[in-house]
Nucleic acid binder design. Structure first.
Length: 343
DNA sequence: CCTGGCCGCCTCATTACGTCA
DNA sequence: TATGACGTAATGAGGCGGCCA
């Protein structure tokens, strides 16, 4: 499913949206190759007066207006957050529904592209005009139960049951007001939010409102989704980092074990072969700039002043392949003389 | 220029719900 | 059918920065 939203002036427009094909027809549903497209103008508020005063949205903004208490306030906040705005009205282009959606729609007996599955925003205008909407969460609920994951796997015969559950639940909410605690987002909604998240992990108020409109969610829900998504990303990254550090630790442990073994071999060699015993001791020095480690002879100090060039940077005297962390310095350059770290 | 209040957004920790084995 | 594990939507607390009087 592709949805396109063309904003008048977005500081950070969705890149993936630009890839979407545009439906040129505006303000009415139109049939394109048997699929439906919908485009509507959305007036983003531009008043600078006190909070909650301005309401210049298009008709479907009423859905948010009907939201209760906190959510309603949130919507106000988000539409006014940017302060004065001279942006042109936002044009929302809803692109043709995917075959999956169309199939579902037709299986429900409705016209393709107009059935309630997932976030079928095409329901919105008719709903706003002809029906009374208690809240956008009602719409969400209805859409969720009308479609979503279960719908994909269940036979069409369950439609009536699902619809009944939806209406029952909705009526419960009507009675209790705030009984709704949690809604599962549909696959399409999640996928679309995921796409947005790939573009940018945070949203400005305009993008949030636009996304909410497009997905038939409250801006607060979009906001919460992005917050939770960032948290999940961070958690996952932490796990990856932890795994990486664990592997580093294991490698270092193995390296340490190997070095111990090599040291024992060298000691054994020293006792059995006096030639190696006459070789100067070897220590490791680290270049402070590039942090590379090299072997350096620590032969007894010469009688005359130390000549910098006398310092040996030869590889290990033994035929030992250097590890990743132990290798001779690269050739010194004027701007990189490879001075050992001052201790 | 400084300051305090307000607001919006963030992270973080936690809760609560839906789903699945 | 009941249950526990898991994923995730939602909530609340607290911090921070911007704006404004």
């Amino acid at each position: 499913m592709e949805l396109g939203l063309s904003l008048g002036d977005s500081s950070k427009p969705f890149g993936f949206l630009s890839k979407a094909r545009e439906i040129t027809t505006t303000t009415t549903t139109t049939s394109t190759n048997g699929l439906q497209g919908f485009c509507m103008a959305l007036g983003i508020n531009s008043s600078t007066s006190a909070r909650g005063q301005q309401r210049t949205h298009s008709h479907d903004e009423d859905d948010d207006d009907d939201d209760i208490s906190e959510e309603d306030e949130d919507d106000d906040d988000e539409t006014t957050n940017g302060g004065p705005s001279l942006d042109p009205p936002v044009q929302l282009n809803l692109l043709p529904l995917s075959p999956v959606l169309a199939d579902n729609a037709s299986s429900e007996g409705g016209s393709p592209g107009t059935a309630a599955r997932g976030f079928d925003v095409n329901r919105l205008p008719a709903t706003a005009v002809g029906e009374e909407v208690t809240s956008s969460s009602f719409l969400m609920d209805f859409c969720m139960f009308g479609g979503g994951k279960k719908r994909d796997s269940e036979a069409a015969g369950n439609d009536a049951v699902e619809a009944e559950r939806a209406s029952s639940r909705a009526s419960d909410e009507d009675e209790n007001g705030l009984s709704r605690k949690k809604l599962r987002l549909s696959k399409e909604q999640s996928a679309y939010l995921e796409e947005s998240f790939k573009e940018h992990t945070t949203l400005n108020p305009k993008q949030k409102v636009a996304l909410a409109k497009q997905l038939n969610l409250r801006p607060r829900q979009v906001e919460v989704w992005f917050q939770n998504r960032r948290a999940r990303t961070k958690l996952k990254q932490t796990e990856v980092d932890c795994e990486y550090l664990k592997r580093c630790c294991e490698n270092l442990t193995e390296e340490n074990r190997r070095l111990h073994k090599e040291l024992q071999e060298l000691r054994a060699l020293k006792t059995t072969n006096p030639f190696y015993a006459q070789l100067p001791a070897t220590t490791l020095t680290m270049c402070p700039s590039c942090e590379r480690v090299a072997t350096t002879s620590t032969a007894p100090p010469p009688s005359k002043p130390t000549d910098p060039t006398s310092k040996t940077t030869a590889p290990f005297p033994m035929s030992r392949p250097p590890s990743n962390t132990l290798f001779p310095f690269p050739p010194a350059t004027p701007d990189h003389p490879h001075q050992p770290a001052a201790s």
